[in-house]
Every structure is written in structure tokens, then in C-alpha cells.
Design a protein around this nucleic acid. Structure first.
Lengths: 209, 209
DNA sequence: GAGAGCACTTGATTTGAATCAAAGTGCCCA
DNA sequence: TGGGCACTTTGATTCAAATCAAGTGCTCTC
């Protein structure tokens, strides 16, 4: 599907300048590489081809809030205004389909649907962070991620405990303790720290509210 | 501006059915009245004319998260999907301009901008709730509200301490204690519980991060 | 295969906000 | 004019999660 997967980001930039819209190129990003920063001009949007992306915001003292993770097939990078308010970075080795400004204008109808689901996700996440305890937050996170990976029983976490903590408004220690507790109750099982088997999906779902 | 301010909601519904789009009618709502509920079909959107509105979500055990407040001039009611995931209710005596489905289709470009700012607001709020302490949350709330009311030094709160608590992920007691503390430091002064003078705007802004 | 460097886990203690409880305060209406 | 009621404030105590502090285990390199 992505014939130009090995194409560099610089070439993608060039094509965009020449106003080609529909077809796009795929740019590779190493784990940890910044995709855009707060303050950068918004002139592209992205679709994850492989890998995973986090979008986050920082406070001056270093506190961080991850507002979203993006998995293969998902789009991100559109925001209100002309400059980014958030940072985006590749969590793992990632390939991104890059769309130019012209493409965004042509597809404003689809963009509306994406913006509305983005708003819904953020608002749902507000409920989780604002009104649920640590166990409920982690359970909701695992279920959400599982569904977005196709709903199977095995779950691969592309992100670290710190990323999860910054997404859920917790600390790594608390995330780790909750995972240990869920493992103790046999709700989940760990193959390794980043690979989770959901042993009792119903029990996990019951923990969300 | 709103010539038909006294028109009933039922008449507004009728006009919508007859496909009149651009001109709209204004419907009055008493304090506490529900505007729409979770599960309701999405077929209108609203602009606050006078008063104030809260949009919130409930957990089965009664915990509540207010995701947004809407003041005069602001629009709300558009969501992803075909049914509402949230409740909306008038906080005070409120008048709403009601727009029908046809109007929304015609103005999808403006709706995109609204959806993007809605997403940005929700994501900014995630940072506040996920990573800031009680004092920072209340300070951020007061500044946000103040700016949306025109940026003067006097601030009128249309909502109760409970509404504020449910918006900030706190309890009424904690909100009250923070307000008392800010009053003690002379950052703010209270004319009454719902009318606040911002005595030291810079000090308040400094508390946000 | 030894050792450095990370990510993750576990334990002890502290702490900020929740909870529980009891007053104020103001407002509506009889 | 005063009683009732909802909202707000204040105080005492508890508790969930943060912080502080070691470990453990894995991977990568030399």
C-alpha cells in the first residue's frame, strides 16, 4: 500500500510544496523523534502507518500531560489556530503518511468528523482523569487500547509506564502498582512489561465505572 | 437582535421542520432545565444568547464531570456520531438561539473551526485536571472565565461551587477552601459568593503554572 | 560474559484532597 | 417577619496517590 515507505521526510516536504494533494508520501521516524513542537506552524496532518505517536503538552516546571496516543490508521496533527499548541513525537519506530495543506482543504468534510471525534475522545478522557480513581483509569486505558488494536485478548503497549502515567494523570509507580494488583487478581497476565493478556475482559470492563 | 426572544421552543422545532435555516429563533430555559440528554438525537446546535450552560457526563454511581461551560455568544451541541454522549443544562435563566440541521450542513466550515477549538479547550483542560493542584486549577478557571467575560476585573460566576468542583475534578469543600485562601492572600476579593473581584491579576496568572 | 544504563517494580513515608460533620449565610415565600 | 431550605464555609479526620528510596531484571555494548 505505501509504495514510497522509504522516502525521506525532506522529499515529502518538496512534494507538498509542489501542490500534489491526494497521493502522499510516507516518512519514517525513529523512536523518540519529535514530529512537531509547540509553536510550529500547522501545515500538514498525519496518519500513522506503523508504530505509535504521543501528543502532549508541558508545563514550565516539566510536568507533562499526554492528551492522546495514535495507533496505525489514526490521524492527528490538526488543531485550532495556525500554530501547534502541543508536541507530537514518535513513541517507537514509526512511519507516517503526511498530508499537505491543500489536501486538508479538499477534505474539510472528513476533517470535521475527525475533529468531532477528537473532541469526544478528549471529553471522555476528562471524565476518566477528573472523576475516576487509579484502578479505573488504568482499566479504561487498557480497554480503550485493546479495542483500538482490534479487540483481541493480547495487548501490546508501545509506550512506557511514564507515558501511560502522563496520559492518565498518575505516576509510573502508581501505574505499576495497579498493573501488579490486576495481575494479582488474575484480571490480566503479563508476558513481559509491554505485552498484556486480558484474562478476564468482563472483570476489566466492570472496573471502569 | 433576537426579535423572537419570547418564542417557545415548540415553535422553534416547527420552524426547523419547515427547513428555514439562516434565521433562527430564541428559546428560553429556566435555571436547571435540561437542554438535551445523553442518548438524544443530535439535530440542532445552540448559541447562548443570555445566561449560561453546562455540558456534563455522569458515571453510574453519580460522579459527574462537567466538560464545558458556555457563556453568551458561545456555541455548543455538536458532537461526533448521531446521538449525544453528554447532558446539557441551563445553569441560570438562559436564552438560546437554536439552529437546525440544515443550518449546520450549510455552515460546516465554521463548524470545523468550532470543533477544533472545542477539542483544544478540552485538551487544555486535560492538562489542568491531570497535572495541576487544586489552587492551580481554581486560578486557571477564574482566569479563563474572566477572559471569556471580557477581561474586566470583576467576575460573575453563574455556576455553583458544586458545578465548579465537577468541572475541575475537585469537591465543593476544596473549591471553597481555595477561594478562601486566595481571598486571604488578597489575590481576589468576594463581594458575595458568586461575585469576585480580581485584585491581583498577575498573582492569579502566576498561580496557573 | 561482565558491567553500564534503563525501565520497571516494590516498599516506607508523606501529603494534598476527600470525606465526614457542623456551622454560617442568604433568600424565598408563607 | 421569621421559618425553612439550599448554598457555602470551616473544622477534624481519613485515605489514595505522590514522593522518596531501594531493588530487580533486561538489553546493549565492549
Amino acid at each position: 500500500m505505501y509504495a514510497a515507505a522509504q522516502t525521506s521526510f525532506q522529499q515529502a516536504e518538496h512534494v507538498e510544496r509542489t501542490q500534489i494533494s491526494g497521493p502522499y508520501l510516507v516518512a519514517p521516524y525513529q523512536a523518540g523523534r519529535e514530529i512537531y513542537a509547540e509553536g510550529d506552524l500547522i501545515d500538514k496532518c498525519y496518519q500513522v502507518s506503523t508504530g505509535a505517536v504521543s501528543v502532549y503538552r508541558l508545563l514550565p516546571d516539566g510536568r507533562r500531560q499526554v492528551v492522546s496516543f495514535h495507533l496505525p490508521g489514526e490521524m492527528f496533527g490538526f488543531e485550532a489556530g495556525s500554530n501547534h499548541s502541543f508536541f507530537a513525537e514518535a513513541i517507537t519506530e514509526t512511519k507516517l503518511a503526511v498530508f499537505g495543506r491543500r489536501h486538508m482543504q479538499e477534505r474539510s468534510r472528513e476533517l470535521l468528523a475527525l475533529a468531532l471525534t477528537g473532541m469526544a475522545r478528549a471529553q471522555q478522557h476528562l471524565l476518566v482523569i477528573g472523576r475516576q480513581c487509579a484502578v479505573e483509569r488504568v482499566a479504561a486505558f487498557l480497554i480503550d487500547l485493546c479495542e483500538r488494536q482490534g479487540g483481541g485478548r493480547q495487548l501490546r503497549l508501545p509506550m512506557s509506564r511514564q507515558d501511560i502515567a502522563d496520559y492518565l494523570g498518575l505516576t509510573t509507580e502508581t501505574v505499576s502498582r495497579v498493573v501488579t494488583k490486576l495481575k494479582g487478581r488474575s484480571v490480566i497476565a503479563l508476558r513481559d512489561a509491554r505485552t498484556i493478556d486480558i484474562v478476564k475482559p468482563d472483570a476489566l470492563r466492570a472496573l471502569c465505572n
